[in-house]
Amino acid sequence: MATKVINFLSLCGLTWFVPFVKLASGECPKEQLREILSVIGIPVVSVLIFFAFWSFTAAQIKTSLGNLPGPVAVWEASKTLIAEHRDERAKEKAFYQRQEERNAKRLAKDPQAEVRIRKYTGKPTYFDQIGTSLITVFAGFLIATLLALPIGILCGLNKYVMTAFSPLIQIFKPVSPLAWLPIVTMVVSALYTTNDGLFEKSFINSAITVALCSLWATLINTALGVASIDKDYINVARVLRLGNIEKIVKVVIPASLPYIFAGLRISLGVGWMVLIAAEMLAQNPGLGKFVWDEFQNGSSHSLARILVAVFTIGIIGFMLDRIMVVFQKLVSFGQDVATA
């Protein structure tokens, strides 16, 4: 049991908890306590020092919106955001309840009456915005993956294809999302003219911008992984006389999965980073827009709320990375994966 938990934790890269599990299963308490002190104690101390430094310096910096908020102000702001979320949800619930009651009454009076259900149009809460950001980043990541994987595999299989794509990759890879966004916006508004509202334009703009910036890592890693497959595996495929498609499906892709997933992990990281900038400009109602609106709002709480967003973005980015690490480990049979 304990071994299983430990294996799972190290699979997720959550090695800090390993000593706790060992301690719980009664394994040499003294050693485990020392281990806990070093793996937990050191980070806790360093974070505390950071907080102290932060609250000290923040107090010295006067901005037009008041003092730069320290840890306490940010903590308060995060509590406010949660409270606002609760209020909004309560309002929404009440709205639907009122609507239902009204409709029921109308139907009781006249069974033929046309009943319309109106959607609640309150402003999105902080948590809605986190959700929007996550959906957007995954949409962009999905587009990037669908583009990068086949092209990467082709590049890896054939060096002429690689040579053909190489200049394009080199030129477009370093381009900032802020440069892409205006182009994407114009192209999307020219091509996506339907107003059926399946997707918001701002959502499409942000997702495509994320895709444009994040696909390169997957593409390059896939190409590299496919190109550097152990020659022995190819020999096995040749001896078995596997057809081209079979060779790709049964040998090439599985053999390059560790590289592909390393690329996907970088892509998702880049995508999440780029997303905030894209949302700010595209006005996609996610965390980026939250930051921008707070900045424009310019109230005395704005900076603290933006800092809450900063931490949220960081923590979510970290969790996304951990999820990708798990996948990466699952496909790297017996090879090490860097988790730092």
Partner: peptide, 13 residues
């Protein structure tokens, strides 16, 4: 012609 390679060449996945 069944071949046994020097370094096994098993598919690790």
């Amino acid at each position: 012609r069944g071949i046994v390679f020097q370094n096994y060449s098993l598919l690790p996945w």
